[in-house]
């Protein structure tokens, strides 16, 4: 399995007067886990959404193997995504929600049971999503991201709402997927967790890229948290 190379080339995204991402340039390689880190409002989600064609760049490009998301053949199957804003129909069960997505990305319905098993939701799969806890919803979102057995995964704060067991499980999952040659791009605030998960990092703040490269190369002898706090000022108090 060979994941895609993701590339930002001078990506800028403005919302009115707010510059969410400013002149972002960098590559995300297959076979490793890349962490997109930064304080609230740093532009992480925006950078991921531009890659997925959900938000149009103001200037510059975000490409997958050299082309825009919309030009990737079978993008829905090849690129697995977990986004915080991605919703599910509350009146439908997890199974029904996933069957809709399975039809949309043109994969066999057998995959629905497979991914529910992977995220340990099999027992609750028939319940309506309305009654799901935050963590269950998040696991469903991860299941949806895995539905097409994608070679490239883009995950925005996938650990949100997960309990410690699930976080450890997720770490193993991401490491395994990367070890298989897939591309894994993940955003997170949980620095201690990220330190154990990622190989490469992008550290953003106020839309700017503050550091980029291999984890040890960026952090040196410091912890990821120390490096992060030194490089970013965040939203202040």
């Amino acid at each position: 399995m060979q994941g895609a190379t993701l590339r930002y080339d001078g990506l800028t995204k403005r919302y009115g007067d707010t510059v969410a991402v400013r002149d972002l340039t960098g590559d995300i390689r297959p076979g490793v886990v890349t962490g997109m880190l930064g304080p609230n409002g740093a532009g992480k989600s925006t950078a991921l959404k531009c890659l997925l064609g959900l938000a149009a760049p103001t200037s510059g490009t975000a490409t997958i193997d050299g082309v825009a998301y919309g030009a990737v053949a079978h993008a829905g199957r090849r690129i697995g995504t977990v986004l915080e804003t991605r919703g599910f129909h509350p009146g439908l069960s997890a199974v029904a929600n996933l069957r809709v997505i399975a039809a949309a990305i043109d994969v066999d319905d057998a995959n629905v049971a497979r991914v529910l098993e992977v995220v340990s939701l099999t027992g609750d799969a028939g319940r309506r999503v309305r009654g799901y806890s935050l963590g269950m919803r998040q696991r469903l979102a991860i299941a949806a991201g895995l539905l097409g057995d994608p070679d490239t995964l883009i995950l925005d704060e996938p650990a949100n709402g997960l309990d410690p067991h699930a976080i450890v499980w997720l770490r193993g999952l991401l490491r395994t997927l990367a070890a298989e040659g897939r591309t894994v791009l993940v955003s997170s605030h949980q620095l201690a967790e990220m330190e154990q998960t990622v190989d490469d990092v992008f550290i953003m703040d106020h839309g700017d890229l503050r550091a980029q490269g291999g984890l040890r190369e960026v952090c040196g002898s410091h912890s990821l948290e120390e490096t992060f706090l030194a490089l970013t000022e965040g939203t202040g108090r």
Binding site: L54, G70, T81, G87, F88
Partner: peptide, 18 residues
């Protein structure tokens, strides 16, 4: 509109970008 109400439009456009 159900798609925008529940945020499922994202999944729809990820699966079919056109």
């Amino acid at each position: 509109t159900t798609e925008f109400r529940h945020g499922t439009a994202i999944a729809t456009y990820l699966a079919q970008p056109d």
